[in-house]
């Protein structure tokens, strides 16, 4: 029972991160029908920017309460600029190209960003500065620490905010209109290119926050961390139904839970043959199962008409 509760907590924390990243995939897919495989790398850049700027400021004696928000804003701004540039430079020229072209470009951008990050930050792991003594709390025999509580609450707040933006504002309305019919949106006076840029920037801002969360939670960041994280968040988006915002959130949280419960019980399930190091297998098992049995995902019914 204790392990079960503990796995649920871990799953929710990890799932929150997946959900934020999955939202980026799904927003871009919804509006352009494009899978932005470079999105995981944006998360990595976000983590690196937070760690570098925070470490630097702390070493200059900037008080933590000032340094943390500054570095988060910096990372978000950096990621938004990166997301904007990726769309502008790599994807926009291919807007009317056959679908394979932007897909291959996305993989290319992803590799490019990994290599650039390796040149800037090196191959070593970067430690997230010890900011606060993250207090562990005991609930029903399981442990959750401050950082994990903050991650879950922040993720929920951000997702609620995003839903409000998309469903209650003029910009959100324009985003949905562009996602559905670019020509008709133009005829309403919507600057479609601007809306697409804003969508990339929003997704990238969420990626920066996700980068902050993973690196704070694990205490580490690495130039290669975006690859697996991105792939899993993509899986989460597909699980929920790609192009569907609620689906991305649901898929993210579910995938986090599946992974963590799977890792917790895989030893029992296989009679000790496989250990929790096989955790990553679950995400891809889920991906394959969804693609085989329900390609439109849990909440997506509109996939067929867009694909």
């Amino acid at each position: 029972m204790e392990t079960f509760l503990q796995q649920i907590i871990n799953g929710l924390v990890q799932g929150s991160v997946y959900a934020l990243v999955a939202l980026g995939y799904t927003m871009v897919y919804g509006i352009l029908g494009l899978i932005n495989f470079a999105h995981g790398e944006v998360v990595m850049v976000g983590a690196m920017l937070v760690i570098s700027s925070l470490t630097a400021m702390l070493s200059w004696g900037v008080p933590l309460l000032l340094a943390l928000p500054i570095s988060v804003v910096l990372a978000m701004a950096g990621c938004m600029a990166l997301g904007y540039s990726i769309e502008r430079i790599a994807y926009r020229p291919l807007r009317h190209a056959p679908r394979l072209a932007p897909l291959i470009t996305a993989i290319g951008v992803s590799i490019l960003l990994q290599n650039l990050a390796m040149m800037i930050w090196g191959r070593e792991y970067h430690a997230f500065p010890q900011l606060i003594v993250s207090q562990p709390h005991h609930i029903g025999g399981a442990i959750i620490n401050d950082i994990q509580i903050i991650i879950i609450i922040m993720a929920l707040a951000i997702m609620a905010g995003l839903m409000l933006l998309v469903h209650r504002t003029r910009l959100g309305r324009a985003m949905r209109a562009v996602a559905e019919n670019q020509h008709a949106a133009q005829l309403m006076g919507v600057d479609v290119n601007r809306v697409i840029s804003v969508t990339f920037m929003l997704g990238s801002a969420l990626a920066a926050i996700a980068g902050l969360m993973v690196s704070a939670n694990y205490g580490l960041a690495h130039y290669y961390m975006g690859f697996l994280l991105g792939l899993k968040a993509f899986t989460a988006a597909v699980l929920g139904g790609i192009g569907n915002l609620r689906g991305a959130m649901l898929g993210g949280l579910l995938l986090g839970l599946i992974e963590s419960l799977g890792a917790g019980y895989i030893g029992d399930l296989t009679g000790g043959f496989m250990g929790s190091q096989y955790q990553d297998v679950f995400a891809f098992f889920v991906l394959i199962a969804v693609l085989v049995f329900r390609p439109s995902g849990l909440l997506g019914e509109q996939l067929a008409e867009r694909a």
Binding site: R170, R173, A174, R176, A177, E180, N181, H183, A184, A185, L187, M188, G189, V190, Q302
Partner: peptide, 24 residues
């Protein structure tokens, strides 16, 4: 322009469609 085939935003509500008309 009211286009051929109408170009209504099917996944937006009627009210939201009208609001889109006033986008500018």
């Amino acid at each position: 322009l009211v286009p051929e085939g109408r170009g209504v935003f099917a996944r937006l509500t009627v009210r939201e469609n009208l609001q889109m008309g006033a986008y500018t």
